[in-house]
Design a protein around this nucleic acid. Structure first.
Length: 773
DNA sequence: CCATCCACGTTTTTT
DNA sequence: ACGTGGATGG
């Protein structure tokens, strides 16, 4: 079983008891070590699989580990807990959270829900969103929760800090709202589990006795709350094994505390430390590049990757005029690899710093029929139409969550407006009941008038589905629901542009529900909703699909690809201007670690690219080559670096630049005949410029001109409106004024009137109902 | 209550 | 460049 392991791996895999810290460089086979250690414990030391737990950060990592454990352990492996931090905590809380005053059927709020809550909080506390941003407060709260500070702890910690007073109030109100809705946000999942353990020692002990052996993956990314959670669990038996790489700590912005790994040996004095430095993934050239860059960081544990691999090829650097050219060149290269049989699409990944950078690639790939899958961006379950339908399901499942009920009470429009909602909401608050409970007795709420009938039929509808759920499947209920509410029709009416895509998303949701029900026939709607709350885009990646992957470097962590492009290596992009401006060396170091993560994703061929010009937020930026590229000794790179060093070099003579055929023919020809296939649920990129710049024929131009002039003539006759430019007109509200201009708009005349008492107004003639004086 | 327009911020990364 | 949310008028 342990055959073929190197000495260090063997040492780690056969460690039996006591704390173990494995510093595992990128590609050093840490998952292998973890899974083998589990197998070893079971076989050699007769540890009951029931007593083992492995915790990861992502579902994908958990799934991968699960698979490998199942393979190597065999019988009994299913009783090992292999889960993410969040799902572990949910599982524990579902069982015991009633001990700390929540209902076990709590719901989980995503970022979007949090924002809605905070908005309501601002309204209630009369806070002007211009002075204090919701996102700022939420971020602050999240940081506090990462540090296990509840509203009271937070208040006392910052009691002296006057500037935090408002935030304290927001935190209190926010948490109170979540409580009322029986909801927890992501951070609460961890925090409340710790709180539960603190409040109920007997429950904690129960879990301590269960999980005698604990392994934590990606340990460098843990925050204080997660660390505390793990530490509490491990405190009785101290069989805690953590695996991590301080050089790959890239989640500080999310509260990760790099000290957790740096100080592990101080917390656990008798820690055994094993360093894995042999890399089994990449060529020596790739490792040289990665090592050279990360060597610029201070405060590392220190480690140098090496490989026994003999085959090698250079790391390429390529500079382009702009982001489009970057996309075209990378895309054409990929197409040619495929054509020449050098690589399949599934061997290739394109990495970038920010999600916005995916756009150019998508446009070109769609145009050239290069299959791709975009990971990240807007999470599938965060899309509006999906959230709407899920809000319906949540309401049907458990109408305790006011946020969800309010979200859908008027979607699609059924004539229940803000006024009505506010009245019901106030009534509910005053009578200490949930919003939905108040809806149920709408007739008794004063001042609702005709609206109460509409509320009643809404409640009736929800109740019908509730009953239906007893008899039939979730799929049938949601299908019925979509039909009854006319949701699809609403989408079509609302925006023709993206209606197709949104419909596709709904179709996708239906098939996800179907496969969920097929796979877990015994599970309830609540189970489904819970699973959905914790999945991410990355989880939908299927290794066997033949497509190029597009994703941020953060998403790519832990993954590997034979061919990798790390794009957008420019100052201001990577490192981001935010980090550059902060002037904080720690922030730059975190970016450098990110670069290290990026480079070490590549197995055989790494290409680093740079674009001289790039559109950012509607503005063209000219950025110098990233400092991280400058940190690579030139002998490790094949390709010429622009001469500019941290500034723009105006007269840079660019003859090393590749052909830029997009000037004549933006996307070149396509002679490959790839099967067109859309792998991504992501929004379809807009039509390529070729299509967009459809030249108007002369005849069309003339026709267009005709219609336009016709409009003008009509106006000058002063005809069907009964008035023209210069006439005096009367408006119901604004009184008398002079018509300054008449313009034909898309469906109506636009009238500009200078009113004697109200000044200049532009209005539509149809609505304005002006009368000639 | 709804449709429309405009101003504004957003984009560094996410379980 | 793009989407969102507030203001506005009917």
């Amino acid at each position: 079983m342990l055959e073929g392991m190197n000495d260090r791996q063997y040492e780690a895999a056969t460690h039996k008891e006591g704390p173990l810290l494995i510093i595992a460089g990128a590609g050093s086979g840490k998952t292998r070590v973890l899974t083998h250690r589990i197998a070893y414990l079971i076989e050699e030391h007769k540890v009951n699989p029931f007593n083992i737990m492995a915790i990861t950060f992502t579902n994908k990592a958990a799934a991968e580990m699960r698979e490998r454990i199942d393979k190597i352990v065999g019988f009994g492996s299913e009783s090992i807990w292999v889960m993410t931090f969040h799902s572990t905590c949910v599982r524990i809380l579902r069982r015991h959270i009633d001990n700390i005053g929540y209902d076990n059927s709590f719901t989980i709020y995503d970022t979007d829900d949090q924002k809605s809550v905070m908005k309501a909080v601002f309204k209630k506390l009369n806070i002007d969103p211009k002075q204090l941003k919701e996102s700022t407060v939420l971020k602050e709260i999240s940081r506090a929760k990462d540090e296990l500070l509840g509203p009271d702890d937070y208040a006392s910690t910052y009691a002296a800090d006057y500037s935090k007073r408002r935030i304290v109030e927001c935190y209190r109100e926010y948490q109170e709202t979540l409580r009322r809705n029986n909801a927890l946000d992501f951070d609460d999942l961890i925090r409340f589990t710790v709180a539960l353990f603190r409040a109920c020692p007997e429950i904690l002990e129960n879990y301590q006795d269960r999980f005698k052996y604990i392994m934590v993956d990606e340990y460098q990314d843990t925050n204080t709350a997660q660390f505390t959670f793990v530490k509490m669990l491990a405190d009785k038996y101290r069989n805690i094994c953590v695996v991590g790489d301080d050089d790959q700590s890239i989640y500080k912005f999310r509260g990760a505390n790099i000290q957790n790994i740096l100080n592990f040996e101080k917390v656990y004095r008798d820690t055994k430390v094993v360093k894995l430095e042999q890399n089994y993934r990449s060529t020596q050239s790739i490792l040289n590049v990665a090592n050279a860059v990360i060597a610029n960081n201070t405060g590392r544990k220190g480690k140098k990757l090496w490989t026994a691999r003999e085959d090698d090829e250079p790391v390429y650097f390529r500079a382009f005029e702009n982001a489009r050219e970057e996309a075209i060149e990378i895309g054409s290269e990929i197409a040619s690899y495929k054509r020449r049989g050098i690589a399949d699409f599934k061997d290739i990944a394109i990495l970038y710093r920010t999600n916005a950078q995916s756009r150019e690639f998508e446009e070109y790939f769609v145009h050239e029929n290069i299959p791709y899958q975009l990971v990240g961006g807007v999470n599938f379950y965060a899309r509006k139409e999906i959230k709407d339908l899920l809000a319906y399901l949540k309401t049907v499942d458990n109408a305790r969550d006011d946020l969800q009920v309010k979200r859908i009470i008027n979607v699609p429009k059924r004539g229940i407006g803000l006024t009505t909602v506010t009245k019901i909401s106030d009534f509910a608050d005053n009578n200490d009941m949930s919003f939905y409970a108040a809806c149920k007795i709408a007739d008794e709420i004063p001042g609702l008038g005709k609206a109460s009938a509409k509320i009643n039929s809404f409640v009736e509808m929800i109740e019908t589905y509730k009953n239906a759920l007893q008899e039939t499947t979730i799929l049938d209920v949601i299908k019925q629901l979509i039909e009854d509410t006319g949701y699809i029709e609403e989408i079509r009416a609302e925006d023709g542009e993206r209606a197709d895509e949104r419909e596709e998303n709904i179709g996708e949701l239906l098939s996800k529900i179907k496969s969920y029900e097929d796979e877990h026939p015994e599970n309830t709607l609540s189970d489904f909703l819970e699973e959905v709350a914790l999945v991410s885009d990355l989880d939908s990646v299927d290794e066997n699909d033949s497509r190029v992957l597009l994703m941020t470097i953060h998403s790519a962590k832990g993954l590997e690809y034979p061919i990798c492009y790390v794009s957008g290596m420019e100052e201001g992009i990577f490192p981001s201007y935010m980090t550059i401006n902060s002037g904080n060396d720690d922030d730059i170091e975190e970016e450098r670690r990110l670069a290290y993560v990026a480079f070490t994703r590549a197995m055989n061929r790494l290409t680093i690219t740079y674009a001289k010009a790039r559109m950012i937020r509607g503005e063209t930026q000219y950025n110098p080559v990233s400092r991280f590229v400058r940190e690579i000794p030139t002998e490790y790179l094949k390709g010429e670096l622009p001469r500019n060093k941290f500034r723009i070099d105006e007269d840079y003579d660019d003859n090393s630049s590749p052909r830029s055929f997009f000037k004549e023919n933006p996307f070149g020809g396509n002679d490959d005949g790839f099967i067109p296939r859309k792998y991504s649920f992501q929004s379809k990129p807009v039509a390529s410029p070729v299509v967009k710049k459809h030249e108007m024929t002369q005849a069309e131009a003339k026709a267009k001109l005709d219609t336009m002039t016709k409009g003008i003539q009509k106006i000058s006759d002063s005809n069907e409106l009964g008035y023209g430019v210069g006439d005096r007109v009367r408006h119901i509200k604004f009184g008398v004024g002079t018509v300054l201009e008449l313009k034909e708009g898309p469906r109506d005349y636009q009238v500009t009137v200078d009113f004697d008492d109200f000044g200049k107004k532009i209005m539509y003639a149809n609505f304005a109902k002006l009368k000639k004086e």
